[in-house]
Amino acid sequence: MNWGRLITAMVTPFDDDLNVDYDQAVKLAKKLEHERSSALLVNGTTGESPTLTQEEAYRLIAEIKKNVNIPVIAGVGTNNTKKTIDNINNIKDLNVDGLLVITPYYNKPNQESLYAHFKAVAESTDLPIIIYNVPGRTGVNIGVNTVKKLAEIKNIAAIKEASGDMAQFIRMVNETPDDFLVYSGEDILTLPSLAVGGQGIISVASNVAGVKMGEMIDAFERCETEKAAKLNLELTRLFDALFVTTNPIPVKHALNLLGFNVGGYRLPLTNPTPEVSRVVKESLAVL
Rank of each mutant, 00 (worst) to 15 (best):
V204F: 13
F118R: 03
E152L: 14
T81Y: 09
G47K: 13
Y105R: 03
V204E: 06
Y115S: 01
V42G: 15
A29L: 10
T270W: 00
S203H: 10
I102V: 15
A116R: 15
S38C: 02
E112D: 12
M216C: 08
Q24A: 14
H34G: 11
K92C: 07
G214D: 00
T46C: 07
N87M: 10
A57L: 01
R137E: 00
K30M: 12
K83E: 15
I142K: 09
A254R: 06
P192E: 01
T51Y: 06
G210M: 10
S193G: 09
P50V: 03
K230T: 12
L52P: 12
Y132G: 05
N79H: 15
E33R: 13
D179A: 02
G4E: 02
A195V: 10
Q54P: 00
M10H: 08
V280M: 00
V280L: 04
I153A: 12
N141Q: 12
V251A: 04
V76G: 11
V72H: 10
G214S: 04
Q199E: 06
L40Q: 02
V276S: 01
F14P: 06
A229Y: 13
D17H: 14
P177L: 10
S277N: 01
N95Y: 08
L114P: 05
K92M: 07
K108F: 06
L94N: 10
P250C: 08
T45F: 11
D126M: 03
I201H: 11
G139D: 09
A9L: 02
E35M: 07
L191G: 01
L189M: 01
G75L: 15
F169C: 14
L258W: 15
T84V: 09
D179V: 00
V11M: 02
V96S: 09
P192Y: 08
A209E: 03
D21S: 08
K149E: 15
L194S: 08
V244H: 15
D240A: 13
L32H: 07
V276K: 00
N110H: 10
E48H: 10
I129P: 06
T8N: 10
N67I: 05
A120R: 10
A254E: 04
E112K: 14
N80P: 05
I201C: 09
T53F: 13
A25N: 00
N145K: 15
L267I: 03
V196D: 00
P272S: 03
G143K: 10
V280A: 01
T46Y: 08
L233C: 11
E215R: 11
A25G: 04
G259R: 03
N107L: 14
N133D: 03
P50M: 00
L18C: 08
G210K: 13
A120S: 05
I156T: 13
T51P: 09
S203M: 05
I217M: 09
L28K: 14
T45M: 11
G47Y: 12
P272V: 05
I142D: 02
E161K: 02
T270D: 00
